[in-house]
Amino acid sequence: MEIIKVENMSFSYSKEEIFKDFNIVINKGEWITILGHNGSGKSTLTKVMIGLLKKETGIIKINGIELTEENVYDVRKNIGIVFQNPDNQFVGSTVKDDLAFGLENLCLAHDEIEMRIEKYLTKVNMLEYKDKEPHNLSGGEKQRVAIAAVLSMEPEIIILDEATSMLDPKGKEEVIEVIKNLSENNTVITITHNLSEAILSDRVIVLNKGKIVLDGKPLAVFKETEKILSAGLDLLPSMKIANKLAELNYQDEELKGILWELNSKM
């Protein structure tokens, strides 16, 4: 079942055209990764999808409902976005207040808000930080709060726009672990320019200059090394080694010899 459908969408910033007759269908329960180099239009696409930016032409359907100017606030309730910069999406003065911000927007009662804060902070392992202020948290912790804040609003679709790109390796790992768990029950869209973050997802889309150049299962997409490179992306480290070896055209025995030599040096 399709949960997001974008048909013939066009969008441009004042002069620059970003999308022209763009089409994409995302199915319910999928974990989809959108890959693309900086400036390929990934963030713009998500902002258009939830109506933060106004499309020029085309149709966007969320859950079968067409996005219009009147229903944008209602339709948006189905989608939560975690953005790149952990600082710039922390609205509340404490962790608790930050979650409460979104829940207040849903007009929930005090007890319900309290319950959801407990539930979703536990989910991202941040419950004991409940009363902490943002400047006392690490980037990874802030990003986990941002995820909890989005989750607590219980949207069907969760978009993570380079949510791990500003984090250190440890923070990245923490957040990816949370995303993995999410993907079991939700439709998840992760956006990245890093191929290794796409391996776990169900489907990968490569975006270049506002066009989809590749679409399919991760392993199938990764095989198209030329298209990936021409889309301005970097290959997986393992693929780079494989390619290099293929280029050097070693025979099996030769390669074994070289590897032995390297091994004995270590």
Binding site: K47, I50, L52, Y73, R76, K77, I79, G80, I81, F83, N88, Q89, V91, F101, G102, L103, E104, N105, L106, C107, L108, A109, H110, I113, A149, V150, M153
Partner: peptide, 15 residues
């Protein structure tokens, strides 16, 4: 953007 994505708009009814 983050506030709007979380359903806020100025002048809205909030709990």
């Amino acid at each position: 953007n983050a506030m709007e994505a979380r359903g806020y708009f100025p002048g809205m009814e909030r709990s």
